[in-house]
């Protein structure tokens, strides 16, 4: 078995994958994934396209289901049980590659929608919370505009604020900067760095290696559905052990 038990024994795991397999039809997309993410830990997941890294984090909030093995998130095991899935989704926030803001609602309404309807917050409290978080990601002045009227970087920061309004314990990021113009990538990464510094448990799928070096506790390299190498960022980037890791790094760091 792999060496993740050290962290597991501490008893404060946020996410635990145990021998997880997933198939799309007959395509074996995730193979025997075992990974433990501790509370407050920041994990960066990287790998070539088609490696299964997006599928991996989408399994955490059951946007994808797995056929074998177990995934336990915040103490709740993910099965077909809808109540459990909703429980998990309340505590896990997700930021998508193409933002997925609701175009028919203002930014403020995007942020207050879930707190009002899922956490049953009174409207005023929800709006206060949303305003606070929008200020934190520095787009409070856009609160009454519609997503179509914002730039890409602003939309993604709004999406981060929307996820944070549910006060999640874990935040998932699925290639959050891949759809952005280069000059807007920094503002989003800065937001994510600030979030990390406040102690949020984060799992980030990204190609931004500078961010990984600066923020991550561990970097996980996935290729062809299996975890190939896991290490602290310094060791990972400077002394990659597996030859596939070395190949991948040579392709993206040129």
């Amino acid at each position: 078995m792999s060496d993740f038990s050290a962290v597991a024994d501490r008893g404060d795991t946020a996410i635990r994958f145990t021998n997880v397999h997933k198939w799309y039809g007959s395509f074996h997309v995730l193979r025997n994934i075992s990974l433990t993410v501790g509370r407050g830990e920041r994990i960066v997941v990287c790998g070539p396209s088609g490696s299964g890294k997006s599928t991996l984090i989408r399994c955490v909030n059951r946007l994808e289901d797995h056929q074998r093995g177990s995934i336990v998130v915040d103490g709740v095991e993910l099965t077909d049980d809808i109540k459990r899935i909703d429980e998990v989704r309340r505590e896990v926030g997700m930021v998508f590659q193409n933002f997925n803001l609701f175009p028919h609602l203002t930014i403020l309404e995007n942020c207050t929608l879930a707190p009002i309807w899922v956490r049953k917050m009174p409207k005023r409290d929800a709006e206060e919370l949303a305003a606070k978080l929008l200020a934190r990601v520095k787009i409070l002045d856009q609160a009454n505009k519609y997503p179509g009227q914002l730039s890409g970087g602003q939309q993604q920061r709004a999406a981060i604020a929307r996820a944070l309004c549910m006060t999640p314990k874990i935040m998932l990021f699925d290639e959050p900067t891949s759809s952005l113009d280069p000059e807007m990538v920094k503002e989003v990464l800065d937001t994510m760095t600030a979030l990390a510094q406040e102690g949020m448990t984060m799992v980030v799928v990204t190609h931004e290696m500078g961010f990984a070096r600066q923020v991550a506790d561990r970097v996980v390299f996935i290729d062809r559905g299996e975890i190939v190498e896991v290490n602290a960022p310094g060791a990972f980037f400077d002394h990659p052990q597996h030859e596939r890791t070395r190949l991948f790094l040579s392709q993206i760091l040129h």
Binding site: L63, D86, L113, V118, A159, A163
Partner: peptide, 20 residues
């Protein structure tokens, strides 16, 4: 992606249909 975002926020299927 709209349905996924609604689900990721914790809205169950009925609410995500009605609101999103």
């Amino acid at each position: 992606g709209q349905v996924e975002a609604a689900g990721a926020l914790g809205l169950h299927r009925g609410l995500s249909m009605k609101l999103v």
